[in-house]
């Protein structure tokens, strides 16, 4: 992909971590939200970040696509330093897709138009080709027939799947999901998780913030547990859920499971 190549550091190869977060610090005013956080995500890996509310999970993944500037440390995406003031943030964001808790669809556009907009406006791609791709993506998230509905006419779960398709239309290398099922009722959660699982199985690199422990256990290659701005522990799911080492993890899992 031409757009990805343009921002990939020449030295980066796919066997190196796709996302490399090192010692990242971030404060809002006097309040330190991230106190030196590190994590590596390999290509094709699915990472779940879990932890209590306010522990800095959203802030962390929003740093990865430069929606939030970091105060210290380093984040490399495909070898490209995100914290570099000279970095073209827009180029970075084109290869890092993001899905939000509140869907944030564009309410004045139909489902299909939502998916088509960014490739046409941002990537200046040919409209017919984009439409073709968008229809396939709508089908992929199992919303065929809803192409011409406005977000206001779709259920939360349907809107969230349109949001996923909208991100995928930019052909990202990495997908970030921030509690994408937290606003949904239990029935629709399943549909959205199904879509994400499919993506992960196809080899998309995914970083998810989630409260769905069962899903994390099934889908994640690695789990990170955060509390008060630090990563308390991280491990593959089996180990993480069977043998949590830290007291804070045990307490958290005790409350939530």
């Amino acid at each position: 992909m031409a757009t990805a190549a343009a921002t990939t550091a020449p030295s980066w190869t796919p066997d190196q971590p796709m996302v490399c977060v090192k010692d990242v610090r971030k404060s809002f005013g006097a309040f330190e939200v991230l106190k030196g956080v590190s994590m590596d995500v390999a290509k094709g890996e699915t990472i779940c970040i879990i932890g209590p509310s306010g522990s800095g999970k959203s802030t962390l993944i929003r740093c990865i696509n430069a929606l939030v500037d970091i105060d210290g440390g380093s984040i490399k995406v495909e070898g490209q330093e995100v914290n570099d003031p000279k970095l073209d943030k827009l180029k970075l964001r084109r290869k890092v897709g993001m899905v939000f808790q509140q869907y944030n669809l564009f309410p004045h556009k139909t489902a299909l138009q939502n998916v088509m907009m960014a490739p046409i406006n941002v990537l200046k791609e040919d409209k017919a080709k984009v439409e073709d791709r968008a229809r396939k993506l709508i089908a992929k998230v199992r919303l065929t027939g809803k192409e011409n509905n406005y977000p206001g006419e779709l259920s939360g779960g349907q809107q969230q799947r349109v949001a996923i398709a909208r991100s995928l239309a930019m052909r990202p290398d990495i997908m970030l999901f921030d509690e994408v099922t937290a606003a949904l009722d239990p029935e629709t959660v399943k549909e959205v998780l199904f879509t994400i699982r499919e993506l992960a199985e196809e080899g998309m690199t995914c970083i998810l913030v989630t409260h769905e422990m069962k899903f994390a256990r099934d889908v994640a290659d690695h789990i990170y547990f955060t509390d008060k701005g630090v990563i308390v522990e991280h491990a593959p799911p089996a180990e993480f859920f069977e043998n949590p080492r830290d007291e804070r993890t045990k307490t958290f899992l005790g409350q939530i499971l």
Partner: peptide, 22 residues
Amino acid sequence: PNSTKEAASALGYTRLGTYLHV
């Protein structure tokens, strides 16, 4: 809402692009 503008930013829209299209 800010979150709508943020979604546009996350898709790679510039400030002007976000203004015009969203």
